[in-house]
Amino acid sequence: MRDIIISVLTIGGFGAIFGLLLGVFNEKFKVEEDPLFKAIYEVLPHGECGACGFPGCHPCAQAIAEGTVPLTACVVGGDEVAQKIKKILAQQKAMSMN
C-alpha cells in the first residue's frame, strides 16, 4: 500500500509539474494563427488518423486553408465535414469581398 501511495504521489507530482511548465511554455511560444485555419481545424474530426496523407489534423487544416488540397481532403469526415468547410470558405470569401 505504501508503495502505491508513493508511486502515485511521485509520478502524479512530476506529471503535474511538467504539465504546468509545458502550459507556461505554450503561452510563451504561442504562434499567431490564421483565423481561417483555426475555423477549419475546429471542424475536422480530430482523430489524427492520417488518412488524408498528412501526419495529423493540424497540417491537413493548414493545407486546406492554403488551398493546396481540395476541401474534401478529410476522408473520415466525409461529406458532412466537407460541407462545413465549404461554408467556412464561402464566409471567408464574402468577408474579403467587403
Binding site: T10, I11, F14, G15, F18, L21, L22, F25, N26, F29
Partner: peptide, 20 residues
Amino acid sequence: TAFILVIGSFVGLVEMYLKK
C-alpha cells in the same frame, strides 16, 4: 513511466520551440 514522462515533456518543449 518516470523516464518516458521526462522525455515526453522535453519533446513537447522542443516541438513548441521549433514551431515558433
